[in-house]
């Protein structure tokens, strides 16, 4: 292989990211989902740091650190507190059974790769080959949001989607400007808090976090 070592590391971490996305898609337990999310954040932080080292861009170090603090420590901790308070450590139900979901996911991954090939040929970054993986992660997380029936896994899917977007930004253009990244990171954090508050309200209203109950809100 003629690629430099850093590039190979990034590819490895990207593969890990995709694997974690599939794992989240197949996982039934909320607690494990949160752990997987934290691992995904860790892989993201590591890959960002490696890119920063390889290209010598200072602001990528910052965003790697930010990712580590927010996505590996703070948000998983908040989610842990949340499910403790809400007593929802148990299994989650899916709308579609897991093998079907996984097959759909594989289709999506292939679609994402076919989509990313022409774009990554245009990009000039060392991480360009991972753009397909980033897109696949976004789509898989979206799929996870669709097939889950409870509110908490949906939020986890949302956060995973943001991870995928972040990775896409890093791999296509070496990340967004630091200001944008700071803003997005804060948004995600605030969003998590707001979701947490809403969970309590939803449960108070419907005695459950099953989103099926929200169908009652439909206008006839």
């Amino acid at each position: 292989m003629s690629e430099p070592l850093s590039s190979q590391f990034v590819n490895l971490l990207a593969a890990l990211l995709l694997l974690l996305a599939f794992a989240m898609l197949s996982q039934r337990r909320v607690l494990t989902l949160i752990k997987l999310l934290a691992w995904q954040g860790a892989a993201l932080a590591a890959s960002t740091a490696i890119v920063a080292y390889a290209t010598g861009q200072m602001h990528l170090y910052f965003s790697a650190g930010l990712t580590l603090v927010l996505k590996v420590i703070l948000i998983p901790w908040v989610l842990h507190r949340l499910i403790d308070r809400l007593y929802i450590r148990w299994d989650v139900e899916t709308l579609i059974n897991i093998p079907t979901t996984m097959l759909t996911g594989i289709g999506l991954a292939i679609f994402a790769f076919s989509l990313a090939t022409p774009i990554s040929q245009m990009a000039s970054t060392i991480t360009r080959s991972t753009l397909g993986i980033a897109l696949a992660t976004v789509l898989l997380s979206f799929l996870m949001m669709i097939v889950r029936r409870k509110a908490v896994p949906q939020v986890i899917g949302f956060l995973a989607m943001e991870n995928g977007l972040f990775f896409a930004a890093t791999s296509a253009t070496y990340g967004m400007p630091l200001v944008v990244e700071l803003g997005v990171a804060l948004d995600v954090l605030v969003g998590t808090f707001i979701f947490g508050i809403f969970f309590f309200h939803i449960r108070e209203q419907f005695d459950s976090l099953d989103i099926r109950h929200m169908e009652k809100l439909r206008e006839d």
Binding site: F111, L143, I146, R149, E215
Partner: peptide, 25 residues
Amino acid sequence: LQRGRISTYLLYSFLTLIGLLVFVR
């Protein structure tokens, strides 16, 4: 179209996203 189900709404946006991605290829 208004089914009152979040999953269905998410599916709408998902399909739109896929459709747009296919379109821009």
